[in-house]
């Protein structure tokens, strides 16, 4: 008795899951369209932006060092 009820329950679950999978659910397909080229664009832009961020940070670091050196020079001269 228990086995058959379990079997039926399983069957019902399977059917439900089947219908769920069969549904044409709305997904964010923008990134998946056109051979997934947008993913490539995204990856390239991340690398590019990362590089620019790094360059900006480097720029700031050098500027800070310049200021530090100028301060020290003023101190040693005075």
């Amino acid at each position: 008795m228990m086995k058959t009820s379990k079997g039926i329950f399983l069957l019902i679950l399977l059917m439900i899951s089947n219908t769920l999978f069969a549904q044409d659910a709305a997904m964010a397909d923008g990134m998946r369209s056109e051979g997934k080229i947008y993913v490539v664009v995204g990856i390239i832009l991340i690398i590019l932006l990362g590089l620019f961020f790094y360059l900006t940070m480097l720029d700031r670091k050098v500027k800070k060092l310049e200021n530090l050196l100028n301060e020290k020079q003023v101190k040693t001269k005075s």
Binding site: L58, V62, E66, L69, K72, Q73, T76
Partner: peptide
């Protein structure tokens, strides 16, 4: 040009530091 400007600044700093060392 941007990368060059950073490299030139670093070189300038290097020379300034070396000068400082000489003064001391």
């Amino acid at each position: 040009l941007w990368i060059v400007s950073i490299r030139v600044k670093v070189k300038e700093l290097e020379e300034k530091i070396l000068d400082l060392h000489d003064e001391n």
